[in-house]
Structures are given as C-alpha cells and as structure tokens.
Simulated assay, not measured.
Amino acid sequence: MRIITANVNGIRSAAKKGFFAWLASQQADVVCIQETKAQIHQLREEPETFFPAGYHCYYHDAQKKGYSGVALYCRTQPDSIIEGMGSVEFDAEGRYLEARFGNLSVASLYLPSGSSGDERQAAKYRCMQHFETVLENLSTAGRQAIICGDWNIAHKPEDLVNWKANQKYSGFLPDERAWLDKLFVDYGFVDAFRELPQEPNQYTWWSMRTNAWDRNLGWRIDYHVLTPNLHGSVLATNIYRNERFSDHAPVVIDYRYP
C-alpha cells in the first residue's frame, strides 16, 4: 500500500509545476493533499486535472477563499468520508479529511502555523489540544489509522537545520515538541518515516528565502503518523526532491498492508 502526503501550497500552482504528471507515475493508493487554496467549484472547471482518472477525489475547503484546504485521492472507494475534526473553529479552515476503509482510516491533516504572531500561535495550541482528542478516539476505538500531512512542528534537533537558534520560533517551540513527545512516547503513536534508518538532513519544507531549497536548509514538518497497532508496517520511505512543486516536498511511504 503506497500513501503520499503533499502540501502543495496552492493546488493550481502545483499543477502548473508538474505535480499531477508526477503523481500519475506513482501508483499511490491514497494521496493526502494540504493547502489546496481553492474552492471545489473552481477546480471543477478543470476536472481532468483536479479529479484525476482512477481516483475517487474528495475536497474539504476553507470558507475563506485562497486559504488552507485539504484533499484525498483514493484508488479504492472509501466506505465513508469524515469531513472535519469536529471543531467549528478549525473545520471552517478546512484542515482535516478522513477516509475509512473497513478498520483503516487514512487522513489528510493541515495543522495551523503559528509563525505570523501570538494570535495564530494560540490558535495552533487550541487546534493541537482538540486534535489530541481525535487521535485518542481513533486509538481507543481500535482503528488502524495513518494521519498524513503538514503538522507544522519539527520534532527533534535532527528534523531541522540550526535547531539551537530555532527553539524560540513557532514550529520548534518546547511546548510543541513536548506535545509530539506525548503522542509518540506516552500514547505510542508512530512517526512512520523514523521507522526505518534514514540519512541525515532529511527535510520536507524549505523557506522561499535565502536559497534554502538549493542549500537544503529545511525542516521536517510533514509526517505520516500511525496508530500503535500499525507499528512495524513500514516497508519504504522517500522524500521526493527531484522536482519542486511547492515549498514542501511529497513524502511517499509504502506499507505492508493486506
């Protein structure tokens, strides 16, 4: 089973940069997309692009135009789709979309960024607190779940460059990292990418400034997060950097799953 997550920073922009041509070659079972920055009625104007053949396509838009939004492309039709995480505040921003196939859930998640100031950082903490209950519910229900997306947090020093200097910035704040510690250590959720040995300097997001992409001055903030009952299911991982579709790179993970 191959699952891809990609923050496209505008799905129409990514399409022009070759994202869908690349996607067609991947034979992914589920594709989780974040930051579509479009309303579904706008995408229906080009159905052959944004509703690719061979996939059942689902979008959860933000109410605000040109902002946020997530999507799922599923090769097998899901039994059900859950739109939103059950929060009036954050569902209006289009941040969570879940497909259910029997006991397996695959979700596209876009956690808020707090980098624009204290108000958005406070919103990010509210979203984290609420989403923790979503994760608990998935786990206690015994579901197998893969939550893919832009979590907007680098977990450990090896997940970003210049980690000492970045400890005071959103995305690497002590409280944010402690929250991931709680998920991965206390609750037993799994960072799928770290299930296998990795080379150093593996990142998924690069600032558009300071030539960061070419210099590989990045952060790893895009994850596949697994419920504990999927521990040991990862077969292969890849951060795709041969082409650049946005300020994030797609994360491709293959799973041992019947």
Score class of each variant (00 low, 15 high):
R2E: 03
I3E: 10
I3M: 07
I11M: 00
I11Y: 03
A15G: 10
K16H: 12
K17G: 04
L23T: 04
A24P: 02
S25G: 15
S25L: 09
Q27I: 11
C32K: 10
Q34F: 07
T36E: 01
K37P: 02
A38H: 04
Q39V: 06
I40A: 15
L43Q: 03
E45F: 10
E45H: 10
E48S: 13
E48M: 12
E48L: 03
F50M: 08
C57T: 10
K65H: 08
G66E: 00
L72G: 10
C74K: 06
R75C: 11
S80Y: 09
I81V: 11
I82G: 06
G84H: 09
M85S: 11
S87L: 14
Y96P: 06
A99M: 14
G102I: 08
N103L: 14
L109Y: 08
Y125V: 09
C127N: 02
H130P: 14
T133N: 09
L135F: 14
L138I: 07
L138S: 04
L138K: 13
S139Q: 13
A141N: 11
I147T: 05
I153N: 00
I153P: 03
A154I: 11
K156D: 09
P157Y: 06
Y169H: 14
F172N: 05
P174K: 14
R177K: 09
A178F: 12
W179T: 07
F184A: 03
F184G: 04
V185T: 05
V185C: 13
Y187S: 15
A192E: 02
R194I: 00
L196S: 08
N201R: 12
Y203H: 08
Y203A: 03
R209M: 15
N211R: 15
A212P: 01
N216F: 06
R220L: 00
I221D: 07
Y223H: 13
T227S: 15
G232L: 14
R241T: 10
N242S: 09
N242Q: 15
F245G: 05
P250G: 06
P250R: 04
R256W: 05
